[in-house]
Computed example of a mutant assay.
Amino acid sequence: MLETRHHWLPIIIAVYLPVSFIITYSIAVGNDHVEPVFPYISDTGTSSPESCVFGQLLNIGAALAGIIIYTRYRQCLYHFEGSGRRCLLCLNTIAFIIGLLKIFGVSLVGNFQETNVLTVHLIGAFLAFVVGFFYMVLQTIISYKSQSFNIAGNTLFITKFRILLCIADFILLIMLSVMTLVAGEKGPGPGIEIYDWTSDHPGYAEHLVATISEWLVAFITVIYFATFYKEFKHFRMKAPEVVYYEQQQQEQELNISVIS
Protein backbone atom coordinates (compact mmCIF):
# COMPACT_ATOMS: atom_id res chain seq x y z
CA MET A 1 0.00 0.00 0.00
CA LEU A 2 1.24 3.47 -0.89
CA GLU A 3 2.53 5.42 2.11
CA THR A 4 3.60 9.06 2.10
CA ARG A 5 5.56 11.26 4.46
CA HIS A 6 4.25 14.80 4.77
CA HIS A 7 7.03 16.38 6.81
CA TRP A 8 8.24 18.30 3.76
CA LEU A 9 4.89 20.07 3.26
CA PRO A 10 5.25 22.55 6.18
CA ILE A 11 8.64 23.61 4.82
CA ILE A 12 7.36 23.89 1.26
CA ILE A 13 4.44 26.11 2.23
CA ALA A 14 6.71 28.25 4.42
CA VAL A 15 8.74 28.99 1.28
CA TYR A 16 5.96 28.85 -1.31
CA LEU A 17 3.60 31.51 0.04
CA PRO A 18 6.22 34.25 0.61
CA VAL A 19 7.62 33.55 -2.86
CA SER A 20 4.08 33.78 -4.28
CA PHE A 21 3.56 37.17 -2.64
CA ILE A 22 6.91 38.40 -3.93
CA ILE A 23 6.02 37.27 -7.48
CA THR A 24 2.71 39.16 -7.55
CA TYR A 25 4.32 42.13 -5.79
CA SER A 26 7.02 42.28 -8.46
CA ILE A 27 4.48 42.12 -11.29
CA ALA A 28 2.27 44.80 -9.69
CA VAL A 29 5.20 47.16 -9.04
CA GLY A 30 6.60 46.53 -12.51
CA ASN A 31 3.25 47.55 -14.03
CA ASP A 32 2.99 50.62 -11.75
CA HIS A 33 -0.22 49.24 -10.22
CA VAL A 34 0.96 49.69 -6.60
CA GLU A 35 3.47 51.78 -4.71
CA PRO A 36 6.68 49.78 -4.05
CA VAL A 37 6.77 50.58 -0.30
CA PHE A 38 4.71 47.90 1.49
CA PRO A 39 1.32 47.81 -0.24
CA TYR A 40 -1.37 45.56 1.19
CA ILE A 41 -0.87 41.98 0.04
CA SER A 42 -4.28 42.06 -1.64
CA ASP A 43 -3.35 45.24 -3.51
CA THR A 44 -0.61 43.32 -5.33
CA GLY A 45 -3.28 41.00 -6.76
CA THR A 46 -5.97 43.54 -7.60
CA SER A 47 -5.23 44.54 -11.19
CA SER A 48 -4.71 42.36 -14.25
CA PRO A 49 -2.52 40.47 -15.07
CA GLU A 50 -1.18 39.98 -11.53
CA SER A 51 -4.70 39.30 -10.24
CA CYS A 52 -4.80 36.08 -12.27
CA VAL A 53 -1.40 34.99 -10.98
CA PHE A 54 -2.36 35.96 -7.42
CA GLY A 55 -5.56 33.90 -7.49
CA GLN A 56 -3.90 30.82 -8.95
CA LEU A 57 -0.96 30.89 -6.53
CA LEU A 58 -3.22 31.36 -3.50
CA ASN A 59 -5.45 28.48 -4.62
CA ILE A 60 -2.42 26.20 -4.75
CA GLY A 61 -1.27 27.50 -1.37
CA ALA A 62 -4.73 26.85 0.10
CA ALA A 63 -4.61 23.27 -1.21
CA LEU A 64 -1.19 22.68 0.37
CA ALA A 65 -2.39 24.19 3.66
CA GLY A 66 -5.47 21.94 3.51
CA ILE A 67 -3.29 18.83 3.28
CA ILE A 68 -1.24 20.03 6.28
CA ILE A 69 -4.36 20.77 8.33
CA TYR A 70 -5.82 17.33 7.54
CA THR A 71 -2.52 15.62 8.32
CA ARG A 72 -2.32 17.41 11.68
CA TYR A 73 -5.91 16.39 12.43
CA ARG A 74 -5.19 12.73 11.68
CA GLN A 75 -1.96 12.80 13.67
CA CYS A 76 -3.70 14.13 16.77
CA LEU A 77 -6.61 11.73 16.26
CA TYR A 78 -4.19 8.79 16.24
CA HIS A 79 -2.76 9.77 19.63
CA PHE A 80 -5.98 10.88 21.33
CA GLU A 81 -8.38 8.11 20.27
CA GLY A 82 -8.89 5.63 23.08
CA SER A 83 -7.10 7.87 25.58
CA GLY A 84 -10.26 8.98 27.32
CA ARG A 85 -9.29 12.63 26.78
CA ARG A 86 -12.53 13.80 25.20
CA CYS A 87 -11.49 17.42 25.60
CA LEU A 88 -8.49 16.92 23.32
CA LEU A 89 -10.57 15.03 20.76
CA CYS A 90 -13.11 17.85 20.75
CA LEU A 91 -10.39 20.51 20.41
CA ASN A 92 -8.84 18.57 17.55
CA THR A 93 -12.16 18.40 15.67
CA ILE A 94 -12.89 22.11 16.24
CA ALA A 95 -9.37 23.04 15.12
CA PHE A 96 -9.83 20.97 11.95
CA ILE A 97 -13.10 22.75 11.09
CA ILE A 98 -11.59 26.17 11.81
CA GLY A 99 -8.56 25.24 9.70
CA LEU A 100 -10.83 24.43 6.76
CA LEU A 101 -12.55 27.81 7.17
CA LYS A 102 -9.14 29.46 7.15
CA ILE A 103 -8.06 27.95 3.85
CA PHE A 104 -11.48 28.69 2.37
CA GLY A 105 -10.85 32.31 3.30
CA VAL A 106 -7.47 32.25 1.58
CA SER A 107 -9.15 31.02 -1.58
CA LEU A 108 -11.77 33.78 -1.36
CA VAL A 109 -9.07 36.43 -1.00
CA GLY A 110 -7.34 35.15 -4.11
CA ASN A 111 -10.43 34.85 -6.29
CA PHE A 112 -12.47 37.90 -5.25
CA GLN A 113 -10.41 41.05 -5.69
CA GLU A 114 -11.13 44.02 -3.39
CA THR A 115 -11.96 46.28 -6.34
CA ASN A 116 -14.48 43.79 -7.77
CA VAL A 117 -16.31 42.14 -4.84
CA LEU A 118 -15.12 43.93 -1.71
CA THR A 119 -17.56 42.26 0.73
CA VAL A 120 -16.55 38.73 -0.23
CA HIS A 121 -12.88 39.76 -0.24
CA LEU A 122 -13.17 41.11 3.31
CA ILE A 123 -14.97 37.96 4.47
CA GLY A 124 -12.11 35.92 3.02
CA ALA A 125 -9.54 38.13 4.77
CA PHE A 126 -11.40 37.71 8.07
CA LEU A 127 -11.43 33.93 7.70
CA ALA A 128 -7.78 33.80 6.64
CA PHE A 129 -6.39 36.08 9.35
CA VAL A 130 -8.78 36.21 12.33
CA VAL A 131 -10.22 32.70 12.13
CA GLY A 132 -6.73 31.51 11.19
CA PHE A 133 -5.44 33.04 14.42
CA PHE A 134 -7.87 30.89 16.42
CA TYR A 135 -6.61 27.82 14.55
CA MET A 136 -3.10 28.64 15.78
CA VAL A 137 -4.38 29.15 19.33
CA LEU A 138 -6.21 25.82 19.36
CA GLN A 139 -3.20 23.97 17.96
CA THR A 140 -1.01 25.59 20.62
CA ILE A 141 -3.42 24.47 23.36
CA ILE A 142 -3.41 20.95 21.91
CA SER A 143 0.38 21.02 21.79
CA TYR A 144 0.55 22.06 25.45
CA LYS A 145 -2.07 19.63 26.74
CA SER A 146 -0.59 16.68 24.84
CA GLN A 147 2.87 16.94 26.44
CA SER A 148 2.05 13.91 28.60
CA PHE A 149 1.53 11.80 25.45
CA ASN A 150 5.23 12.09 24.59
CA ILE A 151 4.44 12.69 20.92
CA ALA A 152 7.67 12.64 18.92
CA GLY A 153 8.64 16.14 17.88
CA ASN A 154 6.15 17.86 20.20
CA THR A 155 8.76 19.35 22.50
CA LEU A 156 8.27 21.98 25.18
CA PHE A 157 10.43 24.35 23.13
CA ILE A 158 8.09 23.98 20.13
CA THR A 159 5.08 24.65 22.36
CA LYS A 160 6.65 27.80 23.81
CA PHE A 161 7.63 28.97 20.33
CA ARG A 162 4.03 28.48 19.17
CA ILE A 163 2.81 30.54 22.14
CA LEU A 164 5.16 33.37 21.13
CA LEU A 165 3.90 33.19 17.53
CA CYS A 166 0.29 33.42 18.74
CA ILE A 167 1.06 36.44 20.93
CA ALA A 168 2.90 38.19 18.08
CA ASP A 169 0.07 37.37 15.67
CA PHE A 170 -2.55 38.76 18.06
CA ILE A 171 -0.65 42.04 18.56
CA LEU A 172 -0.14 42.46 14.82
CA LEU A 173 -3.81 41.73 14.07
CA ILE A 174 -4.83 44.47 16.52
CA MET A 175 -2.37 46.88 14.91
CA LEU A 176 -3.60 45.94 11.44
CA SER A 177 -7.26 46.49 12.36
CA VAL A 178 -6.80 49.74 14.28
CA MET A 179 -4.36 51.35 11.86
CA THR A 180 -6.48 50.41 8.85
CA LEU A 181 -9.45 52.18 10.40
CA VAL A 182 -7.39 55.23 11.40
CA ALA A 183 -5.80 55.48 7.97
CA GLY A 184 -9.21 55.14 6.35
CA GLU A 185 -10.64 57.97 8.44
CA LYS A 186 -7.80 60.30 7.51
CA GLY A 187 -7.89 59.11 3.92
CA PRO A 188 -5.56 59.83 1.02
CA GLY A 189 -7.96 62.39 -0.41
CA PRO A 190 -10.76 62.33 -3.01
CA GLY A 191 -10.07 60.45 -6.19
CA ILE A 192 -7.10 58.56 -4.73
CA GLU A 193 -7.33 54.80 -4.50
CA ILE A 194 -6.06 53.19 -1.31
CA TYR A 195 -3.30 51.37 -3.19
CA ASP A 196 -2.05 54.68 -4.64
CA TRP A 197 -1.14 56.20 -1.28
CA THR A 198 2.23 57.90 -1.00
CA SER A 199 4.07 59.63 1.84
CA ASP A 200 2.47 62.94 0.76
CA HIS A 201 -1.06 61.78 1.64
CA PRO A 202 -2.65 62.08 5.10
CA GLY A 203 -2.88 58.82 7.01
CA TYR A 204 0.11 57.37 5.20
CA ALA A 205 2.04 56.56 8.40
CA GLU A 206 -0.92 54.61 9.80
CA HIS A 207 -1.43 52.99 6.40
CA LEU A 208 2.20 51.86 6.40
CA VAL A 209 1.92 50.37 9.90
CA ALA A 210 -1.19 48.46 8.79
CA THR A 211 0.39 47.06 5.63
CA ILE A 212 3.60 46.01 7.40
CA SER A 213 1.47 44.31 10.07
CA GLU A 214 -0.42 42.41 7.38
CA TRP A 215 2.77 41.13 5.79
CA LEU A 216 4.11 40.04 9.19
CA VAL A 217 0.84 38.25 10.03
CA ALA A 218 1.12 36.29 6.78
CA PHE A 219 4.74 35.35 7.50
CA ILE A 220 3.92 34.31 11.09
CA THR A 221 1.19 32.04 9.77
CA VAL A 222 3.53 30.14 7.45
CA ILE A 223 6.19 30.00 10.17
CA TYR A 224 3.59 28.40 12.44
CA PHE A 225 2.85 25.76 9.80
CA ALA A 226 6.60 25.11 9.57
CA THR A 227 6.64 24.11 13.27
CA PHE A 228 4.77 20.92 12.32
CA TYR A 229 7.87 19.68 10.49
CA LYS A 230 9.43 17.75 13.39
CA GLU A 231 6.16 16.07 14.35
CA PHE A 232 5.27 15.11 10.78
CA LYS A 233 8.73 13.63 10.33
CA HIS A 234 7.98 10.69 12.62
CA PHE A 235 5.04 9.08 10.80
CA ARG A 236 3.70 8.13 7.40
CA MET A 237 0.15 8.26 6.08
CA LYS A 238 -1.41 5.45 4.08
CA ALA A 239 -3.38 6.16 0.95
CA PRO A 240 -7.17 5.61 1.19
CA GLU A 241 -8.34 2.09 0.43
CA VAL A 242 -10.87 1.52 -2.35
CA VAL A 243 -13.42 -1.20 -1.51
CA TYR A 244 -16.11 -2.19 -4.05
CA TYR A 245 -19.61 -3.03 -2.81
CA GLU A 246 -19.38 -6.55 -4.23
CA GLN A 247 -16.09 -7.18 -2.42
CA GLN A 248 -17.49 -5.84 0.84
CA GLN A 249 -20.57 -8.04 0.49
CA GLN A 250 -18.43 -11.11 -0.19
CA GLU A 251 -16.32 -10.40 2.89
CA GLN A 252 -19.44 -10.06 5.04
CA GLU A 253 -20.85 -13.34 3.71
CA LEU A 254 -17.50 -15.05 4.37
CA ASN A 255 -17.48 -13.76 7.94
CA ILE A 256 -21.04 -14.99 8.50
CA SER A 257 -20.17 -18.45 7.16
CA VAL A 258 -17.11 -18.67 9.39
CA ILE A 259 -19.15 -17.72 12.46
CA SER A 260 -21.80 -20.30 11.56
Rank of each mutant, 00 (worst) to 15 (best):
residue 89 L to C: 14
residue 260 S to P: 00
residue 136 M to F: 07
residue 30 G to F: 02
residue 195 Y to R: 13
residue 113 Q to I: 04
residue 188 P to H: 07
residue 224 Y to I: 03
residue 6 H to L: 15
residue 108 L to C: 11
residue 87 C to L: 12
residue 244 Y to C: 10
residue 156 L to W: 07
residue 231 E to G: 02
residue 90 C to V: 14
residue 188 P to D: 06
residue 92 N to Q: 09
residue 18 P to S: 04
residue 105 G to H: 03
residue 80 F to I: 15
residue 23 I to F: 05
residue 57 L to T: 05
residue 88 L to Q: 12
residue 166 C to F: 05
residue 179 M to A: 10
residue 253 E to A: 12
residue 30 G to Y: 03
residue 39 P to F: 08
residue 161 F to N: 08
residue 25 Y to M: 11
residue 130 V to Y: 09
residue 72 R to Y: 01
residue 235 F to G: 00
residue 182 V to A: 09
residue 68 I to F: 00
residue 9 L to M: 08
residue 221 T to K: 04
residue 227 T to M: 07
residue 167 I to G: 10
residue 38 F to M: 14
residue 182 V to D: 07
residue 11 I to H: 04
residue 244 Y to E: 14
residue 207 H to Q: 08
residue 136 M to C: 10
residue 125 A to W: 08
residue 94 I to G: 00
residue 219 F to G: 06
residue 153 G to I: 10
residue 198 T to Q: 10
residue 37 V to E: 13
residue 175 M to I: 12
residue 188 P to S: 12
residue 195 Y to H: 12
residue 248 Q to C: 13
residue 235 F to Q: 08
residue 83 S to I: 04
residue 251 E to P: 03
residue 222 V to W: 02
residue 201 H to P: 02
residue 41 I to P: 00
residue 243 V to Y: 11
residue 196 D to I: 08
residue 23 I to S: 02
residue 24 T to H: 05
residue 161 F to L: 13
residue 187 G to P: 08
residue 232 F to G: 04
residue 7 H to I: 06
residue 133 F to C: 07
residue 194 I to H: 15
residue 108 L to H: 04
residue 192 I to D: 06
residue 182 V to W: 07
residue 157 F to M: 12
residue 44 T to G: 04
residue 65 A to G: 01
residue 102 K to S: 11
residue 6 H to W: 13
residue 259 I to P: 01
residue 116 N to H: 15
residue 234 H to R: 02
residue 73 Y to P: 00
residue 120 V to Q: 09
residue 138 L to D: 00
residue 202 P to I: 05
residue 118 L to F: 13
residue 20 S to W: 03
residue 59 N to L: 13
residue 159 T to I: 12
residue 154 N to S: 12
residue 204 Y to T: 01
residue 182 V to I: 15
residue 84 G to D: 11
residue 126 F to E: 09
residue 127 L to D: 04
residue 169 D to C: 12
residue 56 Q to R: 07
residue 98 I to Q: 07
residue 64 L to E: 01
residue 259 I to K: 14
residue 14 A to H: 02
residue 216 L to D: 00
residue 196 D to E: 15
residue 118 L to W: 13
residue 167 I to W: 11
residue 190 P to D: 02
residue 128 A to W: 01
residue 90 C to N: 15
residue 247 Q to T: 15
residue 69 I to Q: 01
residue 170 F to I: 08
residue 24 T to R: 02
residue 90 C to M: 15
residue 196 D to M: 14
residue 247 Q to Y: 12
residue 226 A to Y: 11
residue 86 R to V: 13
residue 226 A to N: 13
residue 138 L to P: 01
residue 243 V to W: 11
residue 250 Q to T: 05
residue 205 A to C: 03
residue 104 F to E: 03
residue 174 I to G: 05
residue 160 K to S: 09
residue 232 F to D: 03
residue 173 L to H: 02
residue 54 F to Y: 14
residue 81 E to M: 13
residue 144 Y to S: 07
residue 19 V to Y: 02
residue 160 K to F: 08
residue 203 G to K: 06
residue 82 G to A: 08
residue 198 T to E: 11
residue 158 I to S: 08
residue 14 A to R: 03
residue 103 I to L: 11
residue 196 D to A: 14
residue 207 H to G: 02
residue 38 F to Q: 02
residue 5 R to K: 14
residue 2 L to Y: 15
residue 166 C to N: 09
residue 45 G to Y: 05
residue 160 K to G: 10
residue 155 T to E: 01
residue 183 A to R: 03
residue 143 S to T: 10
residue 129 F to Q: 04
residue 101 L to Y: 05
residue 195 Y to L: 05
residue 25 Y to N: 06
residue 232 F to K: 02
